[in-house]
Structures are given as C-alpha cells and as structure tokens.
C-alpha cells in the first residue's frame, strides 16, 4: 500500500477532458515531479487531489483510504497540504499568524476552552507557538516572524507558503511551481530546502515545476502531461530521452 495512490483519475469540464486516466503512486520520503506544457492539466490534478474539484472518474487513496468527495479542509486534516502557483498567503497577517493558522486546526480544545482559559488550552497555545517558531527557523524565516506577510521579499513569501503547508502536519506535500519567479541563486537554495524537507519531515513530495534543471536534479520520478493525457512516466533520464516528451514539451535535444 502506497502513501498516495491515484488511479484512472479523470475530470471533464463541459466537453473538455482536462485530465484523462491519470495514475500515480507516491511513497513516504519520495520526491516525484509532474511536468508538461501550459494548460496540460497539472494544477487541475492538484486541485482534484486537494478536493477543490471533484473527479469525473477514478480514485485517490491516501494510506489506502479513498479521499474522493471529501471537502478540502477534511482532505487537509487527513494529510495533504499544498502551495500555490501564484502566492496565496494571508497577506495582511503576520508571518507567525500565517503558520499558526496551519497548526491551529490540530488544536483539540474548543471555543469554550479558549473562553475560560483552561490550563490545557494555555498549554496547547504555548506549544503551538513554540512549534510555529521552530518551523519558521527551520525554513530560515524566524527573524521575520512579526512582519506582515506581504511585506516579505518574493523568495521569502514562497518559503512561507511551504512553512504554512507544513504547519498542517501533512504526509503528502504538493508544491505548485515553487521556483516560479525565483532567480538562479534562489533556485539553488530552493532545491536544497526541498531536499531538507523531504528528509526532515518524512513527507512524500509531489512537485509541479517548469524549471527543468531543478526538476531533473531533485526528482526521483517524473510524470509528463500533455492535453490531460499522460505521455511519459519514468526517471528523469528516461523522460528526457522520450521522443514524445521532446515533441510536446522539452524541444529537440541540441
């Protein structure tokens, strides 16, 4: 039984087959990439897996249990977290609050506990605060904890998105173009960061990315999508040598 198992996943919008018979397995600690030209259905796939869209057919299993039909927050509670192609932080809130939102969903005390400031509530509050600060320092954001999120430099905002997703304590982390808009130096730092997260948090990472250098260097396996169809699956070397991938996406090798 794999951590994440996707089988025959399809979605149709009106007459458009946005995704057709998609299969994937992801194990704990694995790093798998999803690539393809614009409009191929990559983000759509993420949206189905996180419960934003309902699939027309097929199944998504997390730890062997189907999550199709669950609401986004329920899927998040079961262990799938994500970041976004265009940054979607809680822009007007502090860096620390952005991360606390993630942690807080796992709090056990109810509203009454907060009102009456029960010892358990205070204890949990403090523990979450500590965990949030620790997470921020793991991602190198601890000195910015009190800043308003949208004042952060672009690269830091991307890292904060990852921190916020990790705060929900996921088993599977979906990264949607984490390197978009980064300069070469930031991209190098990012691949180090992703590698560190994979080892330290023991999560399975599934990544959409257009930067081939980054994808080829860190992913163990790749799936290539074009017009909603899987056109290739395999190791970076296998995918790079596939003529269909070259035609649809990568271009002829020079």
């Amino acid at each position: 039984m794999s951590l994440l198992e996707i089988s025959n996943l399809s979605v149709v919008f009106g007459g458009l087959k946005a995704l057709c018979d998609f299969d994937l397995t992801l194990e704990q600690g694995e790093l798998v990439g999803l690539i393809g030209p614009n409009g191929a259905g990559k983000t759509t796939t993420f949206n189905i897996v996180t419960g934003v869209y309902r699939p027309t057919a097929g199944d998504v299993r997390l730890d062997g249990r189907s999550i199709v039909g669950f609401k986004p927050h329920q899927i998040n509670h079961r262990g799938i977290a994500r970041t976004f192609q265009n940054i979607r932080l809680f822009a007007g809130m502090s860096v620390l609050d952005n991360v606390l939102v993630g942690f807080n969903q796992s709090l056990r005390h109810g509203f009454a506990g907060t009102v009456f400031r029960t010892p358990r509530h205070q204890h949990e509050d403090q523990r979450n605060q500590d965990r949030a600060v620790e997470l921020l320092s793991t991602l190198g954001l601890d000195d910015r904890a009190m800043e308003i999120a949208h004042n952060l430099p672009y690269g830091d905002q991307r890292r904060l998105e990852i921190a916020r997703a990790l705060a929900t304590n996921p088993k599977v982390l979906l990264l949607d173009e984490p390197a978009a808009g980064m300069n070469p130096q930031e991209k190098i730092e990012l691949s180090g960061l992703i590698e560190m997260i994979r080892q330290r948090f023991g999560v399975g990472i599934w990544l959409i990315e257009h930067d081939m250098k980054l994808v080829m260097s860190i992913c163990q396996r790749l799936t290539v999508l074009d017009h909603g169809q899987v056109i290739a699956v395999g190791t970076p070397e296998q995918v790079r040598a596939d003529p269909r991938v070259c035609e649809a996406y990568l271009g002829e090798p020079t």
Partner: peptide, 20 residues
C-alpha cells in the same frame, strides 16, 4: 485567527484545513 484567515483568502484557508 481562522476568521481572519478566511477573510483574507476564502479558498486557500479551506486548503489549510480551516472548516470555512
């Protein structure tokens, strides 16, 4: 905190585990 998050980004807060 969840209320503020939802008011900033409704869809995203759902994906961060908030029962909107």
């Amino acid at each position: 905190l969840a209320l503020r998050a939802v008011s900033f980004r409704f869809d995203t807060s759902m994906l961060m585990g908030i029962n909107t």
